[in-house]
Design a protein around this nucleic acid. Structure first.
Lengths: 417, 417
DNA sequence: AATGTTTGTGCGAGCCTCATACTAACAAGT
DNA sequence: ACTTGTTAGTATGAGGCTCGCACAAACATT
């Protein structure tokens, strides 16, 4: 793999090595012509993501700009092999020159996606078209791992994946199964893996591999994965909700990933839905997490005498309900309602109107999703604010890796105005 | 009052009458040079709002741009008498030419603010510097008012206020004590005043007075009032929370007023904090509104035998607690905690980290605010995400009228990129 | 073979910011 | 009184970007 001088944006000139991911931060200052260029390039690429292969003329129409403008933006990207022209598509019956659809080149620089869990690290390459390759993983030592062991495992795993890249990746995106400081690009805390607490993974990766590296917590990664490669494609505002052993959420608002101050926000698991209710792992009482996680489901399953209650999850619950196991249908309904409560609160608060469901409930398929949707609609006062829709996310690992890559894409495409 | 041809932005040329508030909607298309101009002009004016009177050189430094750029932006605004140069300020001891601070001219076009309540309408003029004048109000008929009566009252009130304007106002902003469709600029529903349901007030005002008119619901108006004229001045992200007979909230996220799809969002009153709890006015159970409004406070006051429990509110409660009335201190604490629960949830969800309190609790002053703050901090899991701060908003009417004007300002200053 | 339609590309104009150079207005020291 | 140093604001030309217009290329239809 040929290593170029530095990580670059999709800049006009390959030499423009200064425009690193990190150096771009016009923040809340004024706009300049150069920024207009970057921003518009980002928007054109976004529309391309949202629509799939599209001709220049079509892009111009959609964006409401002159065709020459699109040509000017797109030409350098073709030269850099970020984009390629597809086969001409036959014109409509009214005639005309065939359009050449533009799409991301297989030769375009890929993105390295990483999933950091308490017990292992997974890495892969993701093309701009969303295909995953060069998957690798490396477990951490089970017994009292030291930080050096963990670092070595991560390095090993990453190096193997990067070795498979034909061009230098645009960056490394990391989805962390725990709390993250997105500004410092460091892990704050990972449940069950205290060795990772305070680990400055972002700096480590940049130092070791010379690539821009971005960290974010797992639900936020899922969201951006959905935005660029999944069910949230093309949407301006939606939410992702993860359920399982824990609860998490993330928000895409007005065309931007919303993080909150220094990456707080989306900590839905510890919102109160039952003041003075059951005790939560966080020490407080009545958190949403106490009624909408697998822990709650297991307890209830045991109570009503379901087989192997410790192995219960949405998929099995749906099967049990289908087979008429006593109490299963009712339990499924109550579980769905508990999940719906938190979503209803989110709807009332920020009204994203569209939710991508991740985690355990994905196993429950359409039946689970429909049950949740029904309860949410019942729990939200009707209003003119449009319909509330739901979608089921990708399967667990794929969603997380695409999401990790999505973190880098979000940064590249969203020129901060 | 001299009426100009049409409502205008702060455009370069007075003749540029086409650039109405409504016609400006580049939406999610690309940027052009002309938009850069508008956007930058907006940002300069924003910084001026945020900092108070400031010289060109200082503005240039803060925005990180060339001084000539600021001059170029500011000169037309001086010509149009939007801005004026203040008295030269003495240079520092290192010498130098004295700076001429820029500030909003008293001759600048004002904004008309309107507050629409179930029983009456209030109007006023607000200068860009935030001073209120020409206050008027007009009650609605008490017995079975017809829509024509209401329309006449609003017209009368507005006409009296507008007659006092020396230049044509930039627009009319309306804070509505009820649900609003911000897209259609119409009232959806006002509690206790069904006559207003579906009233297309925005169109009516534009038709009648030839001015752009914007509607939004009360808490959102309070928020933008805080943003431009109050405690939220200069902030990029914060929230406003209104408590009283009802509960409401609004969000300013990443430098933009957040509305949610077609103006839903911020309906905090009907988020669940007590699943299957007390019945709420919306017919559901356990809404935040059931434990953090004056209704709850009255019930509790009666239960513990406080004098005149139907007249209880934060101010009296604080006084009673200070005077050692039995149970008052405890009730105050419980009330504060109930309010804090919803704020804690909001903090966990979007993490604005800063809250401006409005409504009843304002009467409770520092004591009430501190109690709420204490409870919120206790209810939010500690995290690196920075400190959570609180501020007390302006008094009721003033806040609402400034907020109504702020709606227009938000639209003028926030060029949609 | 002619006409109409659509795609993509030069070219100059217009708008905006930027860097440089210049003038104006002050303080401090000789 | 005069010089030096510092800061504020302005004039001027260069460079980026989008836009409108005109034009060639490539198709369908008649």
């Amino acid at each position: 793999m040929e290593r170029e001088t530095s990580a670059q944006r999709w800049s006009m000139d390959e030499e423009d090595a200064a425009s690193d991911l990190k150096t771009v931060s016009p923040g809340r200052s004024l706009l300049s012509s150069a920024m207009v260029g970057s921003a518009n390039r980002g928007r054109v690429l976004q529309t391309l993501f949202d629509l799939g292969p599209t001709s220049r003329a079509e892009l111009a129409r959609l964006a409401g700009v002159n065709r020459t403008t699109i040509s000017g933006i797109v030409q350098p990207l073709l030269d850099q092999q970020v984009l390629v022209e597809g086969k001409p598509i036959r014109p409509s019956e009214s005639g005309g020159k065939p359009a050449r659809p533009l799409w991301f080149s297989p030769e375009a620089r890929p993105i390295c996606g990483m999933l950091l869990m308490p017990d292992a690290v997974h890495t892969c390459l993701v093309t701009l078209a969303g295909t995953i390759s060069a998957e690798e993983s490396e477990p951490f030592p089970v017994e009292r791992p030291r930080i050096a062991d963990v670092e070595r495992a991560i390095e090993l795993c990453t190096a193997r994946t990067l070795a498979a890249a034909r061009r230098e990746p645009l960056g490394i995106g990391v989805a962390v199964g725990g709390m993250v400081d997105t500004d410092r690009r460091a892990v704050i805390a990972v449940n069950l893996a205290p060795v990772l607490n305070g680990f400055e993974l972002g700096d480590m990766l940049t130092r070791r591999f010379g690539l821009p590296a971005l960290l974010d917590h797992h639900p936020r990664a899922l969201l951006v994965g959905d935005r660029w490669f999944g069910k949230g494609r093309g949407l301006q505002t939606f939410a992702a909700v993860y359920t399982g052993e824990v609860l998490g959420g993330a928000l895409y608002l007005g065309g931007h990933l919303y993080r909150g101050q220094s990456g707080a926000g989306g900590e839905l698991g510890h919102t109160f839905v039952q003041v003075d209710g059951d005790i939560c792992s966080c020490g407080r009482r009545g958190c949403w997490e106490t009624i909408a996680t697998l822990g709650w489901l297991r307890r209830q399953a045991r109570e009503i005498g379901i087989d192997a209650p410790d192995d219960i999850h949405s998929r099995r619950l749906v099967e049990l309900a289908r087979d008429g196991a006593p109490g299963a249908e009712d339990l499924l309904d109550r579980y769905a309602r508990n999940v719906a409560v938190g979503i209803a609160n989110l709807q009332q608060t920020v009204a994203p109107n569209f939710y991508v469901l991740h985690g355990d409930v994905v196993g429950g398929g359409e039946i689970m999703a429909k049950a949740i949707a029904r309860h949410v609609r019942a729990l939200v006062p009707s209003r003119s604010g449009g319909e509330i829709s739901f979608a089921i996310g990708e399967t667990e690992d794929r969603a997380a890796l695409l999401g990790a890559a999505g973190l880098v894409l979000s940064e590249l495409l969203q020129f901060p105005l």
